Computed example of a mutant assay.
Amino acid sequence: MKKVFVIFTLLISFALTDLAFAQDSKATVYGRIFMPVVKKKSRTFRGRLYRNRLSSRKKRQKTATAPRTSFQDVIIAAYPLSFKPKTEPLKKARILQKNAEFRPHVLAVTPGTRVQFINLDRFFHNVFSYTPGAKFNIGRRPTNSVYSRKIYKTGKINLFCDIHSQMNATIVSLDTPYFTQAGKTGVYLLKELPPGKYRIEVMHPDFPTTESEITVKANEKQEQSFTLSK
C-alpha cells in the first residue's frame, strides 16, 4: 500500500511539473501594423433631440471627443492549427455611449460573452444590429441606462444608433482565446501562446482580413508585422 502511495505521489509530482513547464513555456508574438491612416479630427457634438428630461442641466451638452487612431480598431487573433483550444466567454465586456460615440469603436469578444451597453450621455441613445444571426434592438434608452446582450455567433456584428446616424461600432466574436488589439501607434503584443502552429488573422472593419501562418516554440519571442490595404 505504501509503495502504491509513493508511485501515486510521484505521478502527481510529474504532472504538476509538466503543467508548470507548459505554463512557463508560452510564446509571445509582437510587431507593428501598417495601414493607410486617415486622421479624424476631434469634433463637438450638441445633444438636441431626445435629451434626458431628468437631467438638471439646462444648457446643451458641448464636449469634444477624445483622440483615437484607426490602429486601435485592429484585432490580431491566433487560431491554433496543431491543437484545439478551450474558448470561454469573457468575464467582462462593455461598450459605452459617450459624446455620441460608441467606445470602443471595435470590441473583440468570444462566443457566449455578455456585452453591456451603457449610456453615459445626457440624452437618449439606441443600439441595434441587422447582422444576420445577431439581430437585436434595445430601444431608446435614457442616461445611465445599462443593457446586456449575450453574443452567440462568431464573426463581425455591426452596431448602430437609430437616433444618431453617425454612430457605429463593430463587435468581433472570435472562436479562439488568443487575441489582442493594436495600440495607438499600431504596435501589438500577443502573449501566452502555447508552442505550435497558428493561423494569424489581422482584422479591421474598413480593410480586408490579412492572414498568415506561423510556428512558435516554447519561450520564443517572435516578431511579425502586418500590412493592411484595400
Rank of each mutant, 00 (worst) to 15 (best):
S42P: 08
G112H: 06
M203Y: 14
D73H: 04
K135M: 12
I138A: 01
P194L: 00
F179R: 07
L16I: 10
P194E: 11
K3W: 09
I138T: 07
L11W: 03
Q181V: 15
G155L: 05
F124M: 08
N158H: 13
L54A: 08
K40I: 12
V187H: 14
F226W: 09
V216G: 10
L96H: 03
V172W: 08
K221C: 11
K150Q: 06
P195K: 11
E101A: 03
L96E: 10
I12V: 05
I151E: 01
P111A: 03
A169P: 09
E192S: 14
F160K: 15
I157Y: 05
F123K: 03
P67I: 08
F34E: 13
R68T: 08
R43G: 04
F102Q: 06
T113W: 01
N144V: 00
I118Q: 03
P89I: 11
G196F: 01
V4W: 10
A27G: 15
N52T: 14
M203G: 02
N126E: 00
I95A: 01
L190A: 10
V4D: 12
G155C: 03
L16H: 07
G112P: 02
N144A: 15
K2P: 00
K91I: 11
K135A: 12
F128L: 02
E211V: 02
T65A: 12
L11G: 00
E201Q: 09
R122D: 12
A66F: 13
P85M: 09
V6L: 15
S25V: 05
P208C: 05
S212A: 14
T87K: 03
K221T: 13
P177V: 03
M203T: 02
K26F: 08
Q224P: 00
P205S: 02
E101K: 03
K3F: 05
T185E: 12
P195A: 02
Y188P: 03
K230M: 12
T170Y: 06
V29R: 01
F21M: 12
F83H: 09
P89R: 07
S55I: 13
Y30G: 01
T69A: 08
A78Y: 05
V29E: 09
Y147P: 00
R53N: 08
K191H: 10
G155E: 08
V29G: 02
L190F: 05
I138P: 01
E88I: 13
K58Q: 04
K217W: 15
K91Q: 13
A218E: 12
T9Q: 03
I214F: 03
A22R: 06
E213S: 07
G133T: 06
L10I: 06
F128K: 00
A27E: 04
S55D: 15
T131W: 05
I12N: 10
N126S: 08
S70W: 07
F83Q: 06
D24T: 14
L159E: 10
K91A: 14
R60E: 13
L81G: 07
I7M: 03
E211D: 06
A20V: 07
P89N: 12
V172H: 01
N158Y: 15
G186P: 04
Q61E: 14
L190Y: 04
S82N: 13
E201K: 14
S25L: 05
S145F: 08
N158A: 11
G186K: 05
N119E: 07
T44Y: 13
Q181H: 13
I171A: 04
